[in-house]
Amino acid sequence: MKNEQEQALDRWSAKHIKEAGVEQPSSDFTAQVMQAVEKASEKPVLVYKPLISRIGWLCIAFTVCALLAYTLFTSTSLETSIGVSRSVEQQLEQLTFLPLDLEWQVPSSLTYGMLAVALWMGLEISLGKKRFQ
């Protein structure tokens, strides 16, 4: 008996739900979905491009090598000393008078090199900013 009633309710529900039917979305539904789908399927336009090109790196390497060679083969005597066997007291004593005795000898090539690097960095930063903006 209960089973029959359940079946009756089932038939009754089916009738009404089918009567209610399906709802119609807006007429441009498919177009809107496809627009979103096409946007999602597009491959990213941004292609990786190094900030410094291969030629740029070659130029930098060449400049560094040239500067290094110039420093090695053209610079005059540049003495360095490392106090290995000195006692701590002697070292401290030395340190006390260090600012007075020290004479800075910066080779001109190093100065030019540093200037070139600073110039290059400034140029790269400004160019980089321009590109990303």
């Binding site: 399906v22 709802e23 979305p25 496809m34």
Partner: peptide
């Protein structure tokens, strides 16, 4: 994919 959208849009909606 538009065919699938058309086929199922009423039911999904």
């Amino acid at each position: 994919f538009a065919i699938l959208v058309d086929r199922y849009k009423q039911l999904v909606f």
